[in-house]
Nucleic acid binder design. Structure first.
Lengths: 202, 202
DNA sequence: ACTGAGGGTGAAAGGAATTTCACCCTTTTT
DNA sequence: AAAAAGGGTGAAATTCCTTTCACCCTCAGT
């Protein structure tokens, strides 16, 4: 992404701050004032530049029509939380979505699709992943060996580490009490765990 | 908080959805359309009710001046991330604030003050708290025995479990390789760890 | 010496968005 | 039976926001 000048960065930070604190972006007049400028056109020019460089989406002819892009930092995105997985349906089918949770975009990777999954069981204990943790998953059909992935086996979603033996992939738990999983039938990788949110620390 | 009727709930959900997806709240005209109403005054009346019941903050005479309150669900709050702790200064002093991170408000407890701290070291490994994790801390000067707390010892902030021996409190690591800490001089509890965010899962 | 890009001012015009008014209906509470 | 509260329509008035135009300066690159 194209770099920003000092003043442009300041303008972006101001927009992000207002959006965060107030719940909605500033108007041109408000931005002009916060920039310390005298003309609204100054703010317009900054928005034009930030929009061209991809830091914001600017909808013209709309009051406060400034949207921070995910890459703008300090942004946030609503991600679907996958609840009970309905047999047969794809993981991201609407029927599987329990609710939306707002997540800081700094946890995500670029603009790839992500979702959330609640961890069941203690199989990833040694990796610091506890039951009921929310894992942030980047949706992708492949992953590298050694990465923590979400796999769909017999219609059930599970979080494990991807491993390899001789010629085939298998799934490894991070807990000596759990055996490795060498899937027999159909299975698939749904994504890669990129972050984690724990709602209740005890 | 006062209950909402079915239609009021629907209106609130629409506002929350637009705010999440678009980054800013709807205008009266937009809300009117999404409600399926014909008159903008219908939307005005809903906003009046939602505002009175405390689900939104409505700034009059402002375009899109609708702010979801934290209790409205799906909300998010910008919390200060404490960086290097300057000796002597209180933990939440401005000089210690590295940046602000947006956190879903469902992680927080009511409207108490919270902050974020980056975990250093492996001393809480067995509790599923890894180095570089961000812990969400509810600022409070006391905590119950057995809770995970942030303590300030000799000007350094540390995350440990609060324990008690005979008559005095001490701090316990969740890792057999780390010894318990029986603080000698001045020390204080800065808050209680209520949630956790891991930015990079390896 | 010229050009382009960043940064800036000021004001007028047109479109967007908010308010307020009067009036309607139904359901629940007093 | 009357009052209060939720839900609703339509339109005018007013304020708020955005856009655009003309013109200014400085600095880096050609």
């Amino acid at each position: 992404m194209e770099k920003l000048s000092r003043k442009q960065e300041k303008a972006l930070a101001l927009i992000a701050k207002r959006t965060r604190e107030q719940g909605y972006p500033p108007t041109l007049a408000e931005l002009t004032e916060e920039l310390g400028a005298a003309s609204k056109n100054t703010a317009v020019k900054y928005l034009r530049i930030l929009s061209r460089k991809g830091y914001i989406v600017w909808e013209r002819n709309k009051a406060r029509g400034i949207q921070l892009t995910a890459d703008a930092g300090g942004g946030e995105v609503g991600l679907p939380l996958i609840g009970a997985v309905a047999a047969g349906a794809p993981l991201l089918a609407e029927q599987n979505i329990e609710r939306y949770v707002t997540v800081p975009s700094c946890l995500l990777q670029a603009s790839a699709p992500h979702f959330l999954l609640r961890v069941a069981g203690q199989s990833m204990l040694q990796a610091g992943i506890l039951p009921d943790d929310l894992v942030v998953v980047r949706a992708q059909p492949h992953a590298a060996v050694g990465e923590v992935v979400v796999a769909l086996i017999d219609g059930e979603a599970t979080v494990k580490r991807l491993a390899q033996s001789a010629d085939r992939l298998f799934l490894k738990a991070e807990n000596p009490e759990f055996a490795d999983i060498h899937p027999q039938g159909e299975w698939s990788i749904q994504g890669k765990v990129v972050a984690l949110i724990r709602e209740a620390v005890v």
